[in-house]
């Protein structure tokens, strides 16, 4: 692309955080995609999947590399399907929450006036909400399922990107090229599309892995609390919840999904940090808002 040609060669080195985080994410994605290869996550093998005393099988058991859970289901398969859940939630809620936030931030920052007052007050409220409590309240009024998780995450996660976009738009709209576009007679939409949006992209791209990390974490929290993905569908969150009760007899039920969650979240954060290095003016972005 001609855009790349303009950049001085060799100025930007790919930061190691981006390489490490990206590699881990690719592995997790491959794991999720390969899920059907690891068997049926819902199959309760009560004969071979449990020990003679009816206990879950530990890791490296015959036929079950990562062991089984209390119902004799393959942990490997459940973790892989759990990865699908997590990545799906991260992907979709990332688009919806950042999308909603961007639209609100753009409207408030570009059109100002009444829209600005209304949108930014809602943003303040959105940022001030106690997330878990608000999520549980929302969970009681929405029909259950993975859509509910995405709606809850969107409802709670749009405010921070809205604030980010709003601030950036306020800065941009005073720039000469934006005013030039307006003074030439461009519609608000066309100014936003051709001048504001391209300048917002680096920020949004840098923010999205941070947002994804939060979303995955929050999905796990919701599922752990029983307000997220419904059993028997596998989610790292409800697996952790299940594992908790069997902690003394089968600790792998807890640490396997816990480790997956930790590694995946960390990988997203590493990617986010790496992208921040590529855009030094974005270092103010931080994980989980604040």
């Amino acid at each position: 692309m001609s855009k790349k040609r303009e950049r001085p060669a060799g100025r930007r080195r790919i930061p190691p955080t981006l390489v490490v985080g990206g590699t881990i994410l690719v592995l997790v994605m491959a794991f999720a995609l390969a899920a059907p290869l690891f068997g049926n996550p819902l199959h309760e093998n009560l004969t071979n999947g449990l020990s003679v005393t009816g206990m879950p099988l530990g890791p490296f058991s015959k036929g079950y590399v990562l062991g089984t859970d209390t119902l004799g289901r393959s942990m490997l398969s459940r973790l892989a399907y759990g990865a699908r859940t997590s990545l799906f939630v991260a992907f979709v809620s990332n688009i919806t929450s950042i999308g909603v936030g961007t639209i609100f931030g753009l409207v408030a920052g570009f059109y100002r006036g009444f829209a600005e007052t209304v949108v930014m007050r809602f943003t303040d409220i959105g940022l001030a909400l106690p997330y878990v409590l608000a999520a549980l309240v929302l969970a009681t009024i929405l029909p259950s399922g993975i859509t509910r998780v995405i709606i809850i995450i969107t409802a709670l996660f749009w405010a921070y990107p809205a604030r980010l976009v709003y601030g950036e738009v306020l800065r941009l709209r005073g720039r000469g090229f934006v005013e030039a576009s307006v003074a030439s007679g461009a519609s608000g939409r066309s100014t936003i599309r051709s001048h504001l949006f391209p300048h917002l992209m680096p920020m949004l791209v840098t923010y999205s892995p941070l947002n994804a990390a939060s979303a995955i974490f929050f999905e796990a929290t919701l599922s752990y609390l029983g307000a997220g993905v419904n059993p028997p569908t596998a989610s790292w969150g409800n697996m952790i919840s299940d594992g908790q009760s069997a902690l003394s007899i089968a600790p792998h039920l807890l640490y396997e999904p816990g480790l997956m969650l930790l590694v995946t979240t960390a990988a997203f954060l590493l990617v986010g940090e790496g992208l921040k290095v590529l855009n030094p003016d974005l270092t103010r972005l931080s994980w989980l808002g604040a």
């Binding site: 001609s2 720039r175 000469g176 090229f177 005013e179 030039a180 576009s181 003074a183 030439s184 007679g185 461009a186 519609s187 066309s190 051709s194 001048h195 391209p198 300048h199």
Partner: peptide, 29 residues
């Protein structure tokens, strides 16, 4: 009404090509 602003480092979108910058009024109209 044509206009020229003070700061040419600010009044041209750094992410646009010359063709798009100069052609923007044409596109708008």
């Amino acid at each position: 009404l044509g206009f020229v602003f003070q700061d040419p480092y600010d009044s041209l979108d750094p992410r646009m090509t010359l063709e798009r910058i100069v052609g923007e009024p044409l596109k708008i109209h």
